[in-house]
């Protein structure tokens, strides 16, 4: 049934695209709303009739996975949720995958955010992934959340030398000195790995500039697709690897599934999104091709005239 629905949708999309091509070749203008409708049908149908593909991690993602995998048990890892709901669909799967991986490897997790909107999303990850999937994890001993502080790079410039100067308490109002995880932690330099997740400013770039480089702390960012190409120049010296967009998240999820049986029933939103993503890419490529065919045809007709 699913396949029939999928083929039916693909059929409609192909016929529609051909109709648009024919219409364009006649020199008529296509209303933008028809293009919008196409995008909607494409994404909605591939969501409705599930399309999933296997993923193979690329080297740049594998390096992040291997880093977390090979750190000794109890290593300190900081995850910064520097994003808002607008970026959530592509970066939240990364955040959840990182949380799962760190917890299963029994690393010590420090969670914070430089975005006010990141605080609720940070909480969501803790409540919906960390606590239910790792019920034995103890707050303060295995993980802790520092919450949000305003100021962006101002915050980073302080925590690179002193956490306590910036955070008198954790998110719940407990003084840092009473939290076992902070017993031997003075600054961000004491972290073994930092995983900033986001796609704006302050975000992964600021973490590299203001913490990673001066503190010599390894950084592995999870990035929204829009900014991922901008961060490539920092790889591999200033960022040990990176996850770019939903594809990067899907690769990481697939690597988790491949390596850990306990995650076989886990939610894999990024992998599920790759079906609609693929279909939408095809439609956009088709639009570019149709647009160009029309353009060259018109140009030739004008030249002949």
């Amino acid at each position: 049934m699913t396949n029939i629905g999928l083929y039916f949708s693909i059929g409609i999309i192909v016929i529609g695209l051909l109709a648009i091509l024919r219409y364009s070749l006649k020199g008529k203008d296509i209303d933008r709303r028809i293009i919008f409708l196409f995008m909607f049908i494409t994404v909605a149908s591939s969501l409705l009739f599930k399309m999933e593909f296997p993923e193979k991690p690329t080297l740049i993602v594998k390096k992040v996975f291997n880093k977390i995998e090979n750190l000794p048990e109890g290593s300190r890892i900081l995850i910064s949720f520097d994003f808002d709901p607008a970026m959530k669909p592509e970066v939240m799967p990364m955040a959840n995958a990182f949380v799962r991986h760190c917890m299963v490897k029994k690393h010590k997790l420090y969670i914070m955010t430089l975005w006010a909107t990141g605080q609720a999303l940070m909480l969501e990850s803790i409540e919906e992934v960390l606590k239910p999937e790792f019920p034995d994890a103890v707050y303060g001993e295995d993980y802790t959340s520092l919450g949000f502080k305003a100021g962006g790079v101002g915050v980073l410039n302080v925590i690179i030398t002193d956490f306590r100067k910036m955070y008198a308490t954790d998110e719940h109002g407990t003084p840092l000195d009473e939290i076992p995880l902070f017993a031997e932690v003075t600054s961000a330099k004491d972290m073994d790995l930092i995983l900033p997740i986001g796609g704006g400013a302050p975000g992964p770039k600021e973490w590299i500039l203001f913490v990673g480089d001066p503190g010599k702390v390894p950084i592995a960012p999870g990035l929204a697709a829009v900014v991922a190409p901008l961060i490539y120049p920092y790889y591999p010296k200033q960022a040990i690897g990176l996850l770019g967009g939903v594809k990067g998240a899907a690769e990481y999820e697939s690597e988790l599934l491949r390596n850990y049986d306990q995650f076989k029933d886990m939610d894999t939103p990024a992998l599920s999104m790759m079906g609609p993503q693929t279909m939408a890419h095809i439609v956009i490529i088709a639009f570019i091709i149709i647009g160009n065919i029309t353009y060259f045809r018109k140009r030739r007709m004008n030249d002949n005239a």
């Binding site: 919008f36 956009i284 639009f287 570019i288 647009g291």
Partner: peptide, 10 residues
């Protein structure tokens, strides 16, 4: 996403 699709065509 919709506007990107439209821009791709135009």
């Amino acid at each position: 996403a919709f506007f990107v699709a439209s821009a791709s065509y135009r």
